[in-house]
């Protein structure tokens, strides 16, 4: 409620600034202009949204699979940990706008490079949070399972994996929030559709209202994805304090 009010207030202030010609409408379109662009360009934008959502969802799925594989194998096997950890961390130092054209060059203009870019941005928070979560186990419970002669896999399935779930959800939520960045950079590097592509073209044509409309949709997409995972978290990880209903203290 308060958030909606804050947004409305900010939008009203923004509108007033543009109307009073404090800033040039070419540089900063008024919210009503953006809304109008959203409506008039709805056919193109809806298609773009669909394309980008597809890239982001597939990329996130790939990041989850890769993150789970890396996190678990780094946890279970020391040589894997020693070999991969620096590479995993190093992967995040790669400047995305620089690497994106290379991906396009190698993989073409299709879906593959976009999915890969999203996965590259997203797998890191998933991997690291899962890996940390797997080690963050109650030592008493660990002793208990070892005293029961539970096999390595049983310990992973019964104790470590459930213990790691809350941390993993944190990683997945971060990934969901930043996923669109990967998709936009990939579309900039080479694409003829998608919100990132439209954003780039609209910028070049000084169609700032349309560029802002595309940005608004990216914004909404990130929030929707985050919300989806937050919802899933409440269902799956019902035992942690963070998912408990909050009292108004």
């Amino acid at each position: 409620m308060a958030a909606a009010l804050l947004v409305l207030l900010a939008l009203a202030g923004w509108e007033a600034l543009v109307r009073a010609e404090v800033v040039d409408a070419l540089l900063l379109p008024a919210p009503t202009d953006v809304a109008q662009a959203l409506w008039t360009d709805r056919a193109i934008l809806a298609e773009d949204l669909l394309v980008t959502t597809g890239e982001v969802v597939l990329g996130l799925a790939a990041a989850l699979a890769l993150g789970a594989l890396l996190g678990v194998s780094m946890h279970l096997w020391r040589p894997v940990r020693k070999t991969l950890r620096p590479l995993v961390i190093g992967s995040q130092a790669i400047p995305i706008p620089i690497i994106a054209p290379l991906f396009i060059l190698v993989l073409g203009f299709g879906l593959a490079p976009k999915v890969l870019m999203v996965a590259l941005v997203c797998f890191f928070p998933v991997t690291i949070n899962l890996y940390d979560g797997l080690r963050d186990v109650d030592p008493d419970a660990q002793k208990l399972l070892r005293s029961l002669d539970a096999s390595r896999w049983r310990r992973l399935a019964l104790l470590e994996a459930p213990s790691a779930l809350p941390a993993t959800f944190t990683g997945v939520k971060i990934a969901a929030a930043v996923a669109v960045i990967g998709a936009v950079f990939a579309e900039w590097a080479g694409s003829d559709r998608g919100l990132g592509h439209t954003l780039l073209i609209a910028n070049g044509q000084l169609e700032t209202a349309r560029a802002f409309a595309a940005t608004a949709l990216l914004f909404a997409l990130a929030i929707a994805l985050y919300g989806l995972f937050a919802l899933l978290e409440r269902r799956v990880v019902g035992w942690t304090p963070r998912t408990a209903p909050r009292g108004g203290q």
């Binding site: 109650d138 002793k143 399972l145 049983r154 019964l158 104790l159 990880v237 035992w239």
Partner: peptide, 20 residues
């Protein structure tokens, strides 16, 4: 050493699950 995500029934049966 009870596991917070398991029900009382599953916690009580943990030793059996640990052995397969």
């Amino acid at each position: 050493g009870l596991l917070p995500w398991l029900s009382a029934l599953d916690n009580a049966g943990l030793a059996l699950r640990a052995s397969g």
